[in-house]
Design a protein around this nucleic acid. Structure first.
Length: 552
RNA sequence: GUCCCUGUAGCUCAGUCGGACAGAGCGGCUGCCUUCUAAGCAGUUGGUCGGGCGUUCGAGUCGCCCCAGGGACGCCA
C-alpha cells in the first residue's frame, strides 16, 4: 500500500541517518504518516522528527532535514519538503499517479483489498434477535453494521463467517409459544388467557390464523403440552422465516444459523461449565450456581444455573463462547449487540479470560439505540405493546440502499434518530443519491462511448495531468487505507464518508473535464480514468451492501 | 450509588496512532445548464470542540473533577 511504502522509505532513511551518525542511535518512536489537513502541505506528512526531538532534545527541524535528504528516490514520490517546526511532507508524482489508472483497471473489483487478516478466521455474530417477533429498526442497524463489517474484513484478507445465534430455548420462547397457542384457541372460539409475560402484538394473532389455515383445529384436541410443542414449533419456524426474509430484503445473509438449543443437546453446555468449575470460577450459593467474576475484577458475580436447575441466558452464552473459541477455534470473535446488552460485555470477557482465552480476541460492538421519527413526530417501536413499526415497513418505505447508508453514516457509538421523512426525500438532502448519482453518471458516459463505438483500450493514461484528473486518482487510491482503518477500528462509517468524498472528486472532474471530445487521444485516456473510477466507486458501494445503479 | 455511550457550526454528524489555520452534508446567501445525467458544480456565511484543572514543544484527541442527555445494573434475554 502507498502509505506503507512511504513509511518504509522513511524508516530506511532514518536507519541510514543513524548509521551515518547524523542521528543518535536511540530506540525510535513509531514512524507514521498521515494526510495533512491542509492540501498545501502535500499528500502525506510525517511528524516523526517532532516525536524524536522530544525524546532526544535535538532540534526537530534539523532531524527532519537530515532524514529528508536521505529518503531514496522512488517512482511514487514527487517532492519531499521539510516544514517547520519539523514536518516532512511528501507529494505524489503526477506521472506515477496517472499510471495508477491502469493498475486499478487491472485489479477490477479486487482493488482495495489488503492482506491485513492473512487468512485468520473471524466470526461475526450479529442480529441474533429472539425469534419472538418481527425485527424493528434497531435490529436493522445491527444487521447492517454486521454485514458491512463482514464485507470489509473479507476485503482485508480475513476468512469471515457470519452467524446468527438463534435463541430457540429459554423462557422468552416459551412465552412466545404460549402466546400463539392462546391466540389460536381464542380464534377458534375456545376461551384462553394470554400468558402474563405474553406477546400482545397483532402478529401473534396473524400467526395463529395462518396456522389454522394450514393445519386446521387439530391442536385443540391435543393435551396442552403436546399442542404447545407442536404448534409452538410451527410458529417458531414461521417467525424465523419472517426474520430471514426481512434480512434478505436488507441484503443481509448468514453463513450459519446457530441453535442455542444445540448447546444443551450436544454437550457444550456441560463441558463449558465443567471447565469453569475445574478452574474454580463456579460457586454454589443460595441454591444456584454462580460465575465468580469478582475474582476477575468484575463488580459482581452472575448466576449461571438457576435454583430450579435451568441455565440462564448467561449460562448459555458461556457454552456458546466455549464453542466459538475452543471448539471452532476462531482467531477473532466479533459480537454486535444492542445497547441494552452493554452490561454483558465485561462479564463475557471475564468468561473468556477464565477459560484461558485472551479477552482481546473477543470484540464486542455495542450499537446504540435508534429512535424512529417522521419529521417532528416520534414513532414508537416496541415488541410487546400492540402498535409497532417493523423493519420491513421501513425498508418498504425508504428502500434498502437508503436504509443501509443512513445506518452506516453514524458510528455505532452514537444514538440516532432515523427520520423516515428525510430518508424518503429523493433530493440533494439525501447523500445516498449524491453518491449513486455519481455512479450513474459514470455509467452514462461509458454507455455513450460504446454507442459511438469508441475503443479506448489503447488509451494512454500518461495524458492525464489536469488537476481534477489527478485529484480523482488520488482519492481513488485512498480506498485501501479506508479498508485498513475500518478493519482496525471495526467501524464502517468511514466508508460512507469516503464514498461521498470520492463522488465529490468525480463530480468536480466531470464538470471541469469533458470526457468524450474532439481530442481523440485525451478522450481515450479519460475514458480509462472514468472506468477506473467506476470500479472504485462500485466497490465502495458494494462493501456497504448497496447497489451501484447504471441509470437514475 | 456503580458501569457504558454521547456532548464539535443554526440542524445532522466526521475527525485511527496527540501535530501545521477545526472538517463535511443540510440550511442561509451568490453565481453556473448550446455539448457526456443540474439528483450536479463553484463561491460565501457560520464554531470560547459541554465546563474546569492538569500532562506536553503541541490537546477536539491523553489524565482527573464537574455539568447535561441516553442506556445498563434480574435466578429476563
Amino acid at each position: 500500500m502507498l502509505k506503507q511504502k512511504i513509511v518504509e522509505l522513511l524508516e530506511q532513511a532514518v536507519k541510514e541517518a543513524q548509521e551515518a551518525g547524523k542521528l543518535p542511535s536511540v530506540p525510535l518512536p513509531e514512524i507514521s504518516v498521515e494526510h495533512p489537513s491542509n492540501e498545501g502541505h502535500g499528500d502525506y506528512a510525517s511528524s516523526f522528527a517532532l516525536k524524536l526531538a522530544r525524546e532526544t532534545g535535538l532540534n526537530p527541524l534539523g532531524i527532519a532535514k537530515s532524514v529528508a535528504e536521505l529518503v531514496k528516490c522512488s517512482p511514487e514520490i514527487g517532492t519531499i519538503k521539510v516544514a517547520p517546526p519539523g514536518f516532512i511532507n511528501f507529494t505524489l508524482n503526477p506521472e506515477w499517479l496517472a499510471g495508477q489508472v491502469a493498475i486499478v483497471l487491472a485489479a477490477e473489483e479486487s482493488f482495495g483489498n489488503a492482506d491485513i487478516g492473512q487468512g485468520k478466521r473471524v466470526q461475526i455474530e450479529f442480529v441474533s434477535v429472539n425469534p419472538t417477533g418481527p425485527l424493528h429498526v434497531g435490529h436493522g442497524r445491527g444487521a447492517i453494521l454486521g454485514s458491512t463489517l463482514a464485507n470489509v474484513l473479507t476485503a482485508a484478507g480475513y476468512n469471515v463467517e457470519r452467524e446468527y445465534y438463534l435463541n430457540d430455548a429459554g423462557s422468552q420462547i416459551d412465552a412466545f409459544k404460549r402466546s400463539v397457542y392462546a391466540r389460536y384457541c381464542q380464534t377458534l372460539g375456545r376461551e384462553a388467557e394470554m400468558p402474563p409475560d405474553g406477546y400482545m402484538g397483532g402478529y401473534i394473532t396473524d400467526l395463529a390464523k395462518e396456522i389454522i389455515a394450514a393445519e386446521g383445529d387439530k391442536f385443540l384436541a391435543m393435551p396442552e403440552e403436546q399442542a404447545l410443542a407442536q404448534l409452538g414449533g410451527i410458529a417458531l419456524e414461521k417467525m424465523i422465516a419472517e426474520i430471514r426474509k426481512d434480512l434478505e430484503l436488507l441484503g443481509v445473509s448468514f453463513d450459519v444459523w446457530f441453535s442455542e438449543k444445540s448447546l444443551y443437546e450436544k454437550g457444550q453446555y456441560s463441558t463449558a461449565t465443567a471447565l469453569l468449575r475445574e478452574k474454580g470460577y463456579l460457586a454454589e450459593r443460595e441454591s444456584a450456581t454462580w460465575f465468580v467474576s469478582t475474582a476477575l475484577g468484575e463488580d459482581k458475580d452472575n448466576v449461571v444455573v438457576r435454583s430450579d436447575g435451568s441455565p440462564t441466558y448467561f449460562g448459555g452464552d458461556i457454552a456458546y463462547h466455549y464453542n466459538k473459541f475452543i471448539e471452532r477455534k476462531f482467531d477473532l470473535v466479533i459480537n454486535i449487540w444492542g445497547a441494552d446488552h452493554q452490561g454483558h460485555v465485561s462479564r463475557m470477557k471475564a468468561v473468556a479470560a477464565a477459560m484461558g482465552i485472551n479477552p482481546e480476541r473477543l470484540k464486542v460492538i455495542i450499537s446504540q439505540m435508534v429512535t424512529l421519527c417522521r419529521g417532528e413526530e416520534l414513532v414508537r417501536i416496541s415488541k410487546r405493546s400492540g402498535e409497532l413499526i417493523t423493519l420491513r415497513e421501513v425498508i418498504d418505505e425508504v428502500g434498502k440502499d437508503v436504509c443501509r447508508f443512513f445506518f452506516l453514516c453514524r458510528s455505532a457509538d452514537s444514538q440516532m434518530d432515523f427520520d423516515l421523512e428525510l430518508a424518503k426525500k429523493q433530493s440533494a438532502d439525501n447523500p445516498v443519491y449524491y453518491v449513486q448519482y455519481a455512479h450513474a453518471r459514470i455509467a452514462s458516459i461509458l454507455r455513450l462511448a460504446k454507442e459511438r463505438g469508441i475503443e479506448y483500450s489503447d488509451g494512454n493514461v500518461a495524458l492525464l495531468c489536469a488537476e481534477p484528473e489527478l485529484a480523482l486518482i488520488r482519492k481513488m487510491l485512498i480506498l485501501p487505507e479506508i479498508i485498513e482503518i475500518a478493519t482496525q477500528t471495526l467501524e464502517s462509517h468511514h466508508l460512507t464518508y469516503y464514498a461521498q468524498d470520492l463522488a465529490t472528486s468525480f463530480h468536480a472532474f466531470y464538470k471541469l473535464c469533458r470526457v468524450i471530445s474532439d481530442d481523440k487521444e485525451l478522450s481515450k485516456a479519460r475514458l480509462k480514468l472514468v472506468e477506473a473510477s467506476k470500479i472504485v466507486l462500485a466497490r465502495t458501494l458494494h462493501l456497504m451492501g448497496m447497489t451501484a445503479p447504471e441509470k437514475m
